[in-house]
Each structure stands twice: as structure tokens, then as C-alpha cells.
Design a protein around this nucleic acid. Structure first.
Lengths: 338, 338
DNA sequence: ATGAAAGCGCTAACAA
DNA sequence: TTGTTAGCGCTTTCAT
């Protein structure tokens, strides 16, 4: 008995509760709750006494208890493919700014582009009863989709618009991006065009860009001459390696890369090999990273609204907006490499 | 009444509870709890019946309720300065892999290098009663330190070792990094050395590197000739601009940058201006980003164990390790730019 | 404007 | 091995 009591005391060492604040302030618990959430009515005097007690005791409200007692949580769950691909930190950055302002809390986990892992992590997220779950794109397992629909919580699918949304979608069309990239290269007069990309089975958005890129070239009668797909995630090193391999097999006048990381690798390869850009070889990327503007010849690419995607997604959740698809578009940067 | 009931039903539409599972399986609630957490004892038959009911009803455990009822939470809170600086996504990446394996959940918020914001966000985090709070470095407000100490939850300070830890510290010495960078440049014979950095008041770890860098040069009798500090966060563009300004004012044979982003900007400036590296000007960075190895001349820099910092920090929390400081060291990369 | 009391969905003794 | 019973710390009616 006394042992148990000691244990209790130890565990709860610094844990001041709302009940203790109420007692110290000489008011009821519900009054403290009202004052702290600034909701309902109470007198100015009461408010002062409560705040004084809170201060004096160093009370920190327990949001776990609060969430359980009330209807909805203020957690927002992000289930993202990667943290290495700067795209996702950018989305988180935009979202977290908005969420913090509105007293929401961001929670995340990383799937490594694995749909099975996505399902497991989404399930784990749902256990926290979040206000919303945010995922990349539309390609999920049947199980993930079913679970999300059954959960009753809001779902936001990010960075894609080519597919059917479960609830809210915020992003832009990857198909349109691929198409416009191809059209741009054609307009510039390039005809022997190649492609260097990373694992497209996993990064389905990159896959969509590539397939609509190909369709556009096919329609123009100048299909992709050769392509090189590297295993693993996108990286500068892989872009460099991919271009090296591609040029060993084919004579090209332009290369489309799966994103800017890859394209920078290609750019550096040309720099190191003395291949002049764009006269000997043109390079086109995707994402519009800052670093692409800082290299001696600004990278020709498509700039995507990554931070805005996070911001808008968060705003819609905070506002409890109805289901919808928001097209944020993208911007083609002519640059100097194509 | 009927309205209220409808509302209730709507809100709880898909919310199956443990009690319902227990009823469906024909067992007690605690039995379901034991089976689900695989803790305590129960027969194989019981296990099957429970799992069947879970499956049939599509039950998703409520971790909010679970956390409130049990002693400790499995939330780990990250209060980080930035998501733009790749350092922090890298740390999160390392940590989240370990946390996911151990059924912990990562929560984060972003301070923008503002100690006041850090205090507010740390307070908000504490309201979730996390198992641990992870912060960057040792420089916090008095209020933050006091609050953290009083909270009774574990605290991990990351990416620095030069200072007094509140509880656990995982990282490396920024002072040693600055010192070794200076020693390296001296060894190579450089004597007219400059510095280009970003806002050091906010990024105190960069400030520590710079000050020990200066001390080392002072001791050698060849103090820093000139330095250029740019407002705002580090970026490739700022590195480029900073070097341009610095070279307009001083004749130098080497420049130390606050990190690789800045150094890459400097590198590109030289490339564009036809300044040959390292014969006319040497460049030295900090972080050891992948992209630094992919440019035509590999960047001379110090590689920091960012992912490992996250991993080790998470492991210590999962294992409930005692207070300690873990030095993960760093590696000087000679590269080709210095 | 305020307090009493009934949960929120789970875990953890404690009995059986 | 299993069920019963208290809570965990809040929010939220409902009286007062």
C-alpha cells in the first residue's frame, strides 16, 4: 500500500493536474477548464485567480486527456515517402507553419516509397485519432484506402492531381508537367531526346511525368531515343552516373531528368567532361530547387509549389473545408541549360 | 435528444471500441487488452477469438486513451530550428527509422532558430506528455531549461557537445570542427584566409565553429583577413553573394564557409568568374553533403554524422538510457577544393 | 457565472 | 488464465 503510494508519487513527480489548480484557485474544475480554453463564461476575477494558480503551480495542461475527453484531436498525421527528397521537408515546412499558428500538432512517419509500409504506418497513425492524415499522391493499397475511408478522419492527398481523391487533394498535375517539358524541348528544336530517371515503380509521380513526356514526343513523331533508369532514390550521383551510361549508348541532343537532383548530376557530368551546354547537350529537370538557379548556367526546369502545397493542405484542414481538389499549378523555368 | 443522439452516432460513426471487441469475442476487456499488447497471459484459443473479432469489426486501438491510462507515452517530440537546412531532415530520418521499429511516434515543430519560439513550442510539446523532447544544441532560454527540467521527461540535445547538457547529448564538437578546418588550411599553406557565413546569432553551432576557427588562426599568427556575414539562413545563393562581396574587399587565398550550401555557392561563383580552384582560391565547407562529392572538384569539407545522430538519440530514448554525452565525431574530407 | 458528475477508451491492480 | 473495478486528466452537459 505505502509502496504503491510511493510509486505513484514518484511517477507523477512534477505532474500538476487541473484538479490541483482548481483547488488552489478555490474554484471548480470546469471553471479552470473554461478559463484555460477561453470558452464559455467566467468573471474577470475568476480568470485572474485561475491564471495566478496556473502560474504558481507551473501547470501544463495534458492534451492527451483533453483530446480523449473532447470530440476531435488537433493532431495532423503526415505519412510521407521520404525525408531525403527535399520535396517532403518543403511540404512539411509549409504545413507546420500553418498548423503551429492554429495550435495543431504535426506527427509524421516515413514509408520509403513502400505501399505496404504506408499501410502499416497509416494504421499506426489512425490509432492517434488525428484530425487528418496527409499522404503523397493517389497510389495506395486497397487496404490503405479502405482503412482511411472507414476512419472518418479527413484525408489529404498531396502533390498530385492525376487520379481520384479519397477526400481532399492539393497539388498539380504531374502529367501536365511531363507534357509541357516535352513540348518545351520540341519548341527549342531538340529531336534526339533521352531520359534519366530513378525508380519509377516507387515514385509514381515521376512515372506519370515520364509517361506523358513520352506520349508527347511520340505524338510529335520523335519518340525518346534512349532512357536510363537507376535503382534506388534520386540523387545527384545517380544523375551523373545515369547520364554517363546513357551517352555511352546513344547520341542525343537533350536529356530529360526525373528531377533536379538528377539533372544537377547530369550538369556536373557535362562540366567535368567538357560537354558544352546546351549546344552539345541540353538538360531539363523538375522541381525548381534553389540550387538550380545558383549554378553558372541556371537549370531549365519546372518549379513546383511544394511549400504552398503544405500550407494550403493545412489551411483546408484547419478550416474543415469540404472535399475538393486544389490545383496549385507549376511554372516552367526556361533557364540556360535547354 | 434524438438530435443529440444522431450527432453522437455521426461523430462516432466508425469508432469501434475495445469494449465492443470484448463483447463480440465473448471475453473481458482486459483480456482483449492483453492479447493486443501481447502482454500478460492468455490462451491460444482466446487469442484467436479476440483477433477474429478485431478483424471482423475493423478495430483500431485508441492510443490516446491507452497513453492516458498507462504510465508513459510513446511520443517523441522534436523541436527543430528549420526544415530547409538539410541537417534537420537528416536527423529526423535517422530517428524516425528507429522510432518506427519500436512503435514510438515522432512529433515535431519548427522554431526558425528563434529561442522564444523554441520555448513556446517546447511548452506546447510538453502538453502531449512525450517520452522525450529532442532539441538542437544547448542554447535555450532560461524558461525552456526550467520547464524541461521540471517536466520529468527525457531531454536530448542534438548536434553539439560544447556546453552543459540537461540530460542526454548526442553529436560532436563544433569547436573541434572549426579548429580542425583551420588547421587543415594552415597545413595546406594558405595564409590569407577569409570567412563567409550566415546569421551566427541564431545558428549558435555555426558561431562556435567560426570562433574556434578564428582562435586557431590567431594562434598561428595569421588571423582571418576578412569575413562576410549574410543575414538570413544559409543558402547557395547567399554563399555566392557572400564570396562576391568578400573578394571585392580583400585578396585571399582561401575561404571558410559556414556550411556546404554556402560553400557550393562560392564554388559556383568561382566557376562563373573563371577563378581557378584551388590554385587561385581554396574553398572549405562543413557538413559533407552528397552533392559536394558530385561537383567536378569534390568539395573539401567536414562530414558530420547527421543521420547517426538521430538514430543514436532515438536508441537511447527507446532503451531509457541514463544521462550521458555521446560523441559521434566527424570526418575531414580533403576533397579537391582546398 | 459556476460546480457536480458523468463519461472519453483504455490500462493495471486485484480477485477469482 | 480470466474478469471486475478503479482510475488516467480532462471536457461537457446539466443544474444551480
Amino acid at each position: 500500500m505505502s509502496g504503491s503510494k510511493l510509486t505513484m508519487e514518484f511517477k507523477h513527480q512534477a505532474t500538476v493536474t487541473l484538479a490541483e489548480v482548481a483547488e488552489a484557485a478555490g474554484v471548480g474544475e470546469s471553471t479552470v477548464s473554461r478559463v484555460l480554453r477561453n470558452h464559455g463564461s467566467f468573471s474577470g476575477k475568476t480568470r485572474e485567480r485561475v491564471m495566478a494558480a496556473v502560474e504558481r503551480l507551473g501547470y501544463v495542461p495534458n492534451r492527451i486527456a483533453g483530446t480523449l475527453a473532447s470530440t476531435g484531436s488537433r493532431l495532423v498525421a503526415f505519412v510521407i515517402p521520404s525525408l531525403s527528397n527535399i520535396v517532403f521537408p518543403d511540404v512539411l515546412r509549409g504545413a507546420s507553419a500553418v498548423l503551429e499558428e492554429n495550435r495543431y500538432q504535426a506527427v509524421f512517419s516515413v514509408t520509403d516509397y513502400d505501399p505496404g509500409k504506408e499501410e502499416a504506418l497509416a494504421a499506426a497513425m489512425l490509432a492517434w485519432r488525428p484530425a487528418a492524415v496527409m499522404l503523397a499522391g493517389f497510389e495506395h493499397t486497397e487496404g490503405t484506402a479502405k482503412m482511411l475511408r472507414a476512419s472518418g478522419c479527413r484525408v489529404v492527398e498531396l502533390l498530385d492531381l492525376d487520379g481520384d481523391a479519397l477526400d481532399i487533394a492539393v497539388g498539380f498535375s504531374n502529367r501536365a508537367a511531363g507534357r509541357e517539358s516535352a513540348a518545351f524541348l520540341l519548341r527549342r528544336g531538340y529531336r534526339r531526346i533521352g531520359y534519366v530517371g530513378h525508380d519509377l515503380n516507387r515514385d509514381t509521380r515521376a512515372g506519370k511525368r515520364f509517361s506523358s513526356f513520352c506520349e508527347t514526343l511520340d505524338a510529335a513523331g520523335t519518340p525518346v531515343v534512349a532512357h536510363e533508369i537507376l535503382a534506388g532514390p534520386s540523387s545527384v550521383d545517380n544523375g551523373r552516373l545515369g547520364l554517363e551510361r546513357l551517352l555511352a549508348r546513344a547520341t542525343l541532343d537533350a536529356v530529360y531528368f526525373s528531377n533536379d537532383d538528377m539533372a544537377l548530376g547530369g550538369y556536373f557530368h557535362c562540366l567535368a567532361q567538357g560537354i558544352s551546354i546546351p549546344s552539345q547537350l541540353a538538360i531539363f529537370g523538375y522541381n525548381g530547387l534553389d540550387i538550380g538557379r545558383a549554378i553558372p548556367q541556371p537549370l531549365s526546369t519546372i518549379r513546383t509549389p511544394r511549400v504552398a502545397t503544405g500550407e494550403i493542405a493545412a489551411q483546408l484542414i484547419v478550416a474543415n473545408a469540404p472535399p475538393q481538389a486544389v490545383d496549385l499549378g507549376f511554372e516552367l523555368i526556361e533557364g540556360a541549360t535547354a
